[in-house]
Amino acid sequence: MPFARKVNASITPSENSLLSKSPLLFDVLDKIDPEKRYEILDTGPASSDSLEFLSQYWCKIHISDSRNSLCELNTEKLDTPYKLNRALVKSLMLYKNKKSNLDCLFFWDLLNYLQPDIFPALIDYLLTHTHQNTVLHCYLYTSSLMPESPGRYHILENKQVRIENNSPVTRKCPTYYQGALNKLTYPFKAKRSILHSNGMQEYLLTR
């Protein structure tokens, strides 16, 4: 188990994965009402570990596997709100005529890679499919460099998250302090945050 020893290590390009405690995520999951159907949007790729964990709940999971396509969006090419909306629909597959009522959004490290001018359109699009109590969970890198592309996140049974990233190179990391984050994700704003020893800041945002 070579990666188990890397719990407190930073993510570097040479590493494939590490384990991380994720108290804010498990705080959300622990509070799921077993009597109520819970709807989750996971923007990452399908993870057998995460499905295994979430199978203990009565829930519907939308797995959009859309982070790569979302990160490629830019307002130069998508120069009208209509075009941008169409691209978001194509990526996230949440349709107005099949309106979802999402309780939780798993963004993982998406916000680090998303073009800042896409944030408002993305949040605006998701508002149609959320409600007042919807929570948004994400991680932000706090160091100057981050892996070239988003990682894969697996929810494990032991209240840990396994983060996989096979990017061979790093890139400059955008810095979002809480105020800037709140502005970009409005009306979602940071309710709680924890800085992990691996250099990632875990955020829980609510409306």
């Binding site: 077993p34 399908a46 009565w58 797995i63 597959m93």
Partner: peptide
């Protein structure tokens, strides 16, 4: 496995083969 879409599940319906 590659999967894109939604899964409706009741508690403990998913089996994962590792």
């Amino acid at each position: 496995a590659l999967f894109k879409g939604s899964i409706e599940m009741e508690p403990r319906q998913i089996n994962v083969v590792k």
